[in-house]
Write a protein that binds this DNA or RNA. Structure first.
Length: 821
DNA sequence: GAGCACTGC
């Protein structure tokens, strides 16, 4: 039996060690009683002059001109300002070092100046030494010399993401190693295995900013800027590595994609999987593949071991420990069966010297983070309206607590954010003028980029920032200056319902781990307070961790990836969390329907092709179908698919006037065939705009940011189609013939034959498979229209069932598409 | 009459 070794560094983490202070005292100066008028105003759909991207941008320009604190750099990750070249924000530690540092310069300026890189790295070394993890470097190295798998709990601020790769990169096992592998024809081939460390991240911005930081610390140029660069990154649309890359940050999806081409990860000596606690579906796949890799015979690596480090911010490591142990146990059993008991197994003690046994054991470490203490204050009784409760607490904090100290409020969605924004602004008008001012800043993903940036500008003098955010602020964005967190305890969660084949977006209680994460946002720069708008009893009843995405999403793509990796028996795949059988079966059926699998369940040529496309299997299938309808059809379908695989390209129009303006501005873009052809005409018009695309987008109330992504995807898909000989080698430019709507929509039906509905006599639509009622989403150009049958991209449930991304089709096309399977 | 957050050679 492999021996489990627990090692705890520092104090163990304990959420309840923070003194819980109960009872929220009412603020005498403020009574929040809603009058009738206000209630009406809130209940009505907000009529406030809705800020368009243009208007927001104008506001921003004013604000952005204020001096932004010169950023120093951060030992631990992050800053994920979604745009621009912002450097990482302050961590507590950097405040204490007064060593004057040169302002970070772009590597373009310094790429030949290795002396200055070295000087900078030397300066940064002093900061690295102060990180909680730094003193454990030798221990961590020793553990990985003895064993192949290490689990590491590193709390926020421990420095794990930047330091672990640097601790390991010069280890003997991290050198490129010559090896011989058996080829399919039975001959041996000499290859080089290892030499590089991969560190996976759930988000692109994190991968890039970590790579930049680690390059600075190591005194090496970043990525492809120099052939001598030792640190690089790889994310979609942006890979920056050099022949000398030893440390590579990449997104989880990118590693999966690499594994399709190199199943044994022969480039790597180690894979570090970071942020496992977020439990995106890609992490589950990576973990399963890695377990098979480390506990198998390593034949594809010529026997060279692969070291695996799994890192998480929360202490739930037992399941991971069991997960990897199970793999080793299975391997052991196989070995014992195979070779009839080699020795009379002297059971290994804690410090057993049998190296074979040791490399199979798993080591676990716990590194205390560096956070300031945050006091938790629970609501004394259950809260019914968290918007009102948040309003009270915001003013309570503002009246009682000293400046500085901004307030971050976690809400569920755009609607609650905007409601509370109005309420706070109304109350702030009547505030005692001797008090500091309040600046309310909304923050959610659909907000135009420029408006998001306002959150990062420091507050004007004598002003307290109140940031009203969705859970975008939980992981993706770090706002400095926050000392007070108000947590409503809820979030909108997307859940795929297998039986109905539909996505639901519902407000649900968050997990304890998310609550702790939210609370932590108050203690990044100074001691803070976290006001939970729920009782302690409610808190204790929350789930420990977030529901893993693999239990909440459509598994079609995940299964296709597994099949393409040669996992034939899905039931035997080591799932970190096993999805219900029904969900797996549904996904398999879907893959059969689009010809991605052969009848015996093994992957088909179509499936192999689909797995390599950066698209969902259904959209990929549409692409292949379109390629059979000629180059022109394929080019048009690529434009549409590009729109469908990014966020909404049309800006929301909440007010009546804006809506009318949008109607007028977009009139020349709308197509009566539906949303698909409307997207096509939009891409064509945008791509054909040679003067100023940004201005064009603003004029048409089209999201410029979304269109930039569309163009990235379009370019990627076109280039992939050219490599696959589906398009001619040269980029076709210039004039395109008029599209053929019938051919385009028929191509879509070959992937989406089951996403169709027909008009029934009562005027509503019923799905053709399942006979469920579905309404056309109000954002569709077909909203309110009646046609024989519709094809839709998405079936979602919010307040009711909606079809999104809708086009009109003929019933006999649908019949043909369904019969064709 | 409506928009939680991520991500892909």
């Amino acid at each position: 039996m492999p021996e489990k070794v627990h090692t705890y560094f520092g104090d163990s983490y304990n959420e309840s060690s923070n003194q819980a202070v109960k009872a929220v005292k009412a603020v005498p100066e403020l009574t929040v009683v809603e009058d009738e008028g206000r209630k009406k105003r809130r209940n009505k759909k907000r009529k406030r002059d809705e800020a368009t991207e243009e208007a927001q941008a104008q506001r921003d320009n004013v604000l952005v001109e204020k001096p932004v604190k010169a950023p120093s750099s951060a030992p631990e990750k992050v800053v994920t300002v979604p745009v621009g070249n912002k450097e990482p924000k302050h961590e507590p530690s950097t405040d204490q070092t007064s060593a004057p540092k040169p302002k970070p310069k772009s590597f373009a300026d310094t790429k030949t100046n290795f002396t200055s890189l070295r000087e900078k790295a030397n300066a940064l070394y002093e900061l690295r030494k102060k990180l909680p993890i730094f003193g454990h470097a030798d221990e961590i190295r020793q553990r990985l010399r003895d064993r192949d798998v290490m689990l590491l709990v590193g709390e926020t601020g421990s420095g794990k993401s930047t330091q672990i790769p640097q601790f390991l990169v010069n280890e003997f096992w991290c050198r490129p190693t010559p090896a011989k592998v058996l080829q399919e024809d039975g001959s041996e081939k000499s290859i080089t295995v290892g030499g590089c460390i991969a560190i996976t991240q759930p988000r692109r911005v994190a991968a890039i900013s970590l790579a930049r930081r680690v390059a600075e610390e190591m005194g090496t140029p970043l990525g492809s800027s120099s052939p001598a660069s030792k640190v690089g990154y790889s994310v979609r649309f942006d890979t920056s590595t050099s022949p000398s890359t030893r440390v590579k940050f990449l997104t989880e999806g990118m590693l999966l994609q690499e594994m399709l081409h190199d199943p044994w990860l022969t480039k790597y000596s180690a894979v570090v999987v970071d942020e496992v606690h977020e439990r995106g579906i890609n992490v589950d796949l990576v973990a399963g593949f890695l377990r098979n890799l480390v506990s198998g015979k390593r034949e594809g690596r010529g026997g060279v071991p692969l070291k695996v480090v799994v890192m998480s911010a929360t202490a739930d490591m037992e399941s991971l420990m069991g997960f990897f142990q199970e793999g080793f146990q299975e391997q052991e059993q196989e070995q014992q069966q195979g070779q009839k008991q080699l020795s009379n197994g002297t059971e290994n003690g804690e410090n057993g010297e049998n190296s074979e046994q040791n490399s199979m054991a798993i080591s676990a470490c716990h590194i205390k983070g560096r956070q300031f203490p945050v006091k938790t204050i629970y609501s004394p009784e259950p809260v019914h309206d968290f918007v009102d409760a948040a309003l009270k607490i915001i003013f309570q904090i503002h009246y009682k607590e000293p400046m500085p100290g901004d307030i971050l409020v976690f809400l569920t969605g755009q609607e609650t954010v905007e409601n509370l924004e109005n309420l706070v602004n109304e109350y702030a008008i009547g505030m005692d003028p001797s008090l500091p001012k309040i600046l309310v800043l909304p923050l959610f993903a659909a907000l135009p980029q420029a408006a998001q940036q306002r959150v990062f500008a420091p507050a004007p003098p004598r002003t307290r920032k109140v940031i009203l955010a969705t859970n975008i602020a939980e992981t993706s964005v770090t706002v400095s200056g926050v000392r007070y967190v108000v947590d409503c305890g809820k979030a909108k969660v997307k859940q795929f319902r297998t039986r109905l084949g539909l996505d639901s977006l519902l407000v649900k209680p968050i997990s304890k781990s998310a609550a702790i994460q939210r609370k932590g946002r108050a203690g990044r720069e100074a001691p803070g307070q976290c006001f939970r708008l729920y009782t302690e009893k409610d808190y204790l009843a929350l789930d420990e961790t977030n529901t893993p995405e693999i239990l909440r999403c459509d598994l079609t793509q995940a299964l296709l990836n597994m099949k393409a990796r040669g996992v034939d028996d899905i039931v035997r795949f080591p799932f970190l969390t096993r999805p219900p059988r029904e969900a797996l079966e549904k996904a398999l059926l879907q893959l059969l329907n689009i010809d991605a699998l052969q009848d015996d369940g093994s992957i088909s040529d179509v499936g192999l092709h689909l797995a390599k496309l950066p698209l969902s299997p259904t959209l990929g299938r549409v692409l292949l179908a379109a390629s059979e309808n000629g180059y022109d059809c394929l080019l048009d379908v690529i434009d549409i698919i590009s729109c469908l695989s990014v966020e909404n390209i049309f800006l929301n129009t909440t007010s009546e006037e804006k809506k009318e303006a949008a109607e007028t501005a977009r009139r020349d873009l709308y197509r009566r065939e539906g949303d698909h052809l409307t997207m096509l005409s939009t891409v064509r018009a945008y791509a054909g705009e040679n003067v100023d695309r940004k201005v064009w987008a603003e004029r048409h109330l089209v999201s410029h940011r979304a269109m930039q992504s569309v163009m990235d995807v379009r370019k990627q898909l076109r280039s992939q189609c050219r490599s696959a000989k589906m398009l001619p080698r040269e980029e076709t430019t210039g004039h395109y013939p008029d599209p053929s709507p019938d051919l385009i929509l028929q191509s879509f039906l070959s992937g989406f034959a089951t996403n169709t509905a027909r008009l029934v006599p009562d005027g509503s639509y019923r799905t053709i498979v399942g006979n469920q009622t579905v309404a056309i989403h109000p954002s569709s150009v077909l909203f309110g229209k009646k046609v024989e049958a519709i094809l839709y991209n998405e079936f979602v449930f919010t307040n009711r069932s909606y079809a999104r991304g809708v086009s009109a089709v003929q019933m006999d096309w649908v019949g043909e598409a369904l019969a064709g399977r």
